[in-house]
Simulated scan of single mutants.
Amino acid sequence: MSAPRGLPDDVRESVSKRYYSYPDVLHSASWFLVSELAEVDYCEVIEDRRERRVGSDRADFYQTNNTVALGKGEQMTLREFLGAEFFLDLDALTACNADRIVFWFEL
């Protein structure tokens, strides 16, 4: 969708403070407009390269941080990959007139 954009210039001070308080743990801050998320083609086929935990009887139990080789993953739509919960959240963001989401990743 896009490379990390960093924190928005007008982000709340409490959000900025939280992010910059953990520089060794938090990384790749970014944001999306809710309107951008609404325009994505969720029928696009992608490759799910998450490695499933060996010995697990749950098909949705993934080994943290491991991926399978390119071409060895499962083909699915972006909608299937994200799951129903994502779209409920997107609907809720739209309903409350949210402008954007701000996020980052943790090591």
Score class of each variant (00 low, 15 high):
R50Y: 02
R52H: 06
A38K: 15
F32Y: 15
V68I: 08
R12H: 11
R79N: 12
V15T: 09
L78D: 01
T67P: 06
Y19G: 04
A29N: 01
V68E: 01
D10P: 05
N66F: 08
N65Q: 13
Y20V: 04
H27W: 12
Y20F: 13
G71W: 02
R49K: 09
D41C: 00
S30T: 12
Q63W: 03
S30Q: 05
E44V: 11
D9V: 11
S30M: 06
E36I: 07
D24F: 07
V40S: 01
V54I: 06
S16M: 11
V25N: 11
Y20M: 01
S28L: 12
M76L: 09
Y20L: 09
N65W: 13
F32M: 08
A69P: 07
T67M: 12
K72V: 01
K72M: 10
S16V: 11
L7R: 02
Q63Y: 06
S56L: 06
A38E: 15
L7A: 04
V25D: 10
S28E: 11
V25T: 11
D57F: 10
N66W: 07
D9P: 06
W31R: 03
E39R: 14
S21I: 02
N66R: 11
R58L: 15
K17F: 10
S14G: 05
S21L: 06
T67I: 15
I46C: 04
G71A: 02
K72Y: 00
L78M: 05
